[in-house]
Design a protein around this nucleic acid. Structure first.
Lengths: 234, 234
DNA sequence: TCTCCATGTTAACGATGATAACAAAGAATG
DNA sequence: CATTCTTTGTTATCATCGTTAACATGGAGA
């Protein structure tokens, strides 16, 4: 019986799978330690040995569910237009919420300040990579952090709103409006630099530098010199 | 002992007050039927006679809390500009969520399709009246229903986002951005498209900065700081 | 006075999260 | 090989929870 995975790991996976099944079928209240241990063919104390806590189990279930969701997102390959990629990611996120409402509520339903569930942190990190690509393309006009947090907040809001209405009368219009509004708020219409990478951005910034009145004249002079070095390095 | 309110009504209020107090102090898990009945000086079965259910009690607590919040909102009198009134209402809603996080989670944290808590329904109805006044002023360019649902969704998203971060590092910028984005999406007067100033280029360069190997680490650090100043100035 | 209904009171039931205590079984170490 | 140590399986138990049954009490209306 010596597989590549120890008995502990096997039990861990079985418990998570059983808990996820119960969560999807009967909602949060159906996930009791007894029901989980029975469904996983394990004794109750095993849960506490492995996850320490029921909250630990729920966090693990959320992380696992979200990880599986990310795998399906890997199919989404960059289309060349990072904003269009963000739109596609948005739709997938909404679909994930509607397919796993209990899990989504677990991730975002009762926020505890400072104690972000690992699954939520992973989701935000993943979203940040989308935003970063938009910034690289020179089409972001707020900071990456603000953009990521804004999209994240509005996305979860749209998801919760959709979750709250009965399935037959869900209207994706609101989700689409929210998506478009948020994209309009963080992107510039014109795909700025023709040249990708630091060079294009440096050229664009150099051109717009006189308008950057927050910098002193001395700072602008030094900055302009650096920009010139970046441009010439290309 | 014959007051204008019957003993039942008096008990009802005391139970709700006790439950609300426990909820605010100890979060949702602190609200047990035993703790509530003890704090209210009432026997446990009284809760079930009055509210039928623990969920009924929680709904009543949420409705009461939101009603009290609405009273404070009554102070907000129409300023003549219905859009400006909506902005003020937005801020009050965010403040309500941050002041009563457990109650807010109760209202929106685990949506059950079709079973909207009375407090949430009241909130949406109240918001709808704001939207209606904007429509009357001829400044709405989507349907009232869509506008209300969109503002509601984005508002709760912003609230949950803020609730999830520790109090000392909360940044209302995201909430303001969400508010402005949603207002721009539903109202007519275009606030002029964002001019592609130095901000966009600065953000793009900041994203690509690690690739600018011609600069030393020290230069990159200082440059990043300047870029951040340029972005924030926008 | 009698009846009925709302409320107060006690006790209990089943289920839940969590832990203690101990047995079994290898793995590691000497 | 003997021994220790860590991990895992097993049973039993604790306090607490939501909820309800059963009965007592008391006042309002007939």
């Amino acid at each position: 019986m010596e597989n590549d995975r120890s008995a502990g790991e096997r039990n861990r996976d079985r418990i998570i799978a059983a808990a996820a099944r119960l969560l999807q079928q009967g909602g949060r209240e159906a996930v009791s330690t007894r029901a989980v241990s029975a469904a996983a063919g394990v004794q109750a104390p095993a849960i506490y040995r492995i996850f320490g806590d029921k909250q630990g189990l729920l966090d693990a279930v959320a992380a696992h569910g979200f990880a599986r969701h990310l795998e399906s997102k890997e199919g989404l390959r960059p289309s060349g237009d990072p904003v269009e990629d963000l739109r596609a990611g948005w739709s997938l996120n909404i679909a994930f919420a509607l397919d796993n409402p209990a899990l989504y509520s677990l991730m975002y339903g009762e926020p505890r300040p400072g104690a972000t569930p690992p699954a939520a942190a992973a989701a935000l990190a993943f979203l940040t990579s989308f935003i970063h690509r938009i910034a690289e393309a020179g089409r972001l006009h707020v900071s990456e952090e603000h953009a990521a947090r804004l999209v994240h907040a509005v996305g979860t809001g749209a998801a919760f709103s959709l979750m709250s209405m009965p399935e037959h009368q869900r209207d994706l219009t609101v989700s689409d409006m929210a998506r478009d509004a948020v994209i309009a708020a963080i992107t510039t219409d014109a795909p700025a630099p023709a040249t990708p990478g630091p060079q294009g951005a440096a050229i664009a910034l150099s051109a717009a530098l006189p308008k950057a009145t927050v910098l002193t004249a001395g700072e602008r002079a030094l900055l302009d010199e650096w920009l010139d070095r970046i441009v010439r390095a290309g």
